[in-house]
């Protein structure tokens, strides 16, 4: 009989302890959120609108402050790394500068760190290669399709070689074919770059396909209700979507999500 190998636990990369976020208009966006995320995990924050999943992501990045509690990322308080280069962030929209070429958009994080174009050149090209857009470095964003713009956005997040990639519903506005393709690209990046990824989504299917762990959140007040480690192994390809295991996991996560909707007033 073969003994199952138990890997040593990876070190904790993100630690949220009892985090609250209240906004000025007396809305509690996040309440009592405690969470540990280990290096190399692919974690999805899944939940309905208003469950605080984006707010949680913004707090981890340091874009929003916490009202109470504490978040530590890579060993320092959220948002207080030396130059912001150890966290990559992908917004819901591609968020590119329309006046700059693809190259200059990806170069931006390095430019802000004071690297010259020449110094940064190889790293920018490498990041563009990673997302398969090396040929488009001289194009302007308006010349690209929605999916390509999103790739540029991912390349920009990856150019500083971050340890942590935060993605805020990045593919919500894309068509399904493009989304499937980009899902696979993100999985490739995650594996090849040894990243930790936090992926905010409202799609059960997307979260199950991608993640090693799904955090299910509920609204009013925004809070964590389930923390589900997913059984499925990697690599995952399009075929994984047709397996019984995938269907079963989706059902499980879907039920967990529905449980959070019980007290939702439809007319709210």
């Amino acid at each position: 009989m073969m003994e199952q190998k138990i890997l040593p636990e990876a070190p904790v990369q993100i630690e949220m302890s009892n985090v609250d976020k209240r906004f000025g208009n007396n809305v509690t966006a996040v309440q009592g959120m405690s969470l540990q995320i280990r290096e190399g995990e692919f974690v999805s924050f899944l939940g309905p609108s208003g469950c605080g999943k984006s707010t949680a992501l913004k707090m981890i990045s340091g874009l929003l402050s916490v009202s109470s509690g504490a978040i530590s990322v890579n060993g320092h308080p959220a948002g207080q790394s030396i130059d912001g280069s150890d966290v990559g962030y992908v917004f819901q929209e591609a968020t590119l500068m329309p006046w700059a070429t693809v190259f200059d958009n990806v170069y931006l994080p390095l430019k802000l760190q004071g690297l010259s174009r020449k110094e940064a050149g190889p790293r920018v090209r490498e990041a563009l290669d990673m997302v398969g857009l090396a040929k488009f470095s001289a194009s302007y964003p308006r010349q690209l399709s929605g999916g390509m713009k999103m790739r540029v956005s991912i390349a920009r997040a990856m150019v500083t070689k971050p340890k942590l990639l935060l993605m805020d519903e990045p593919f919500a506005a894309l068509d399904e074919m493009t989304r499937f393709k980009l899902n696979n690209d993100v999985l490739d990046l995650w594996k090849s770059q040894g990243l930790t990824v936090i992926f905010v989504t409202h799609s059960v299917f997307e979260s199950v396909y991608l993640s090693s762990r799904v955090i299910v959140m509920a609204a009013r007040p925004g809070r964590v209700v389930h923390d589900i480690p997913l059984p499925g192994g990697y690599p995952r390809t399009g075929e994984y979507r047709t397996t019984a295991e995938y269907a079963e996991t989706c059902r499980l996560v879907s039920n967990a999500l529905e449980g959070t909707m019980d007290n939702v007033d439809i007319n709210h």
Partner: peptide, 10 residues
Amino acid sequence: NLRDMFRLYQ
């Protein structure tokens, strides 16, 4: 979002 990005990269 671009403003946020500039803030993120300090």
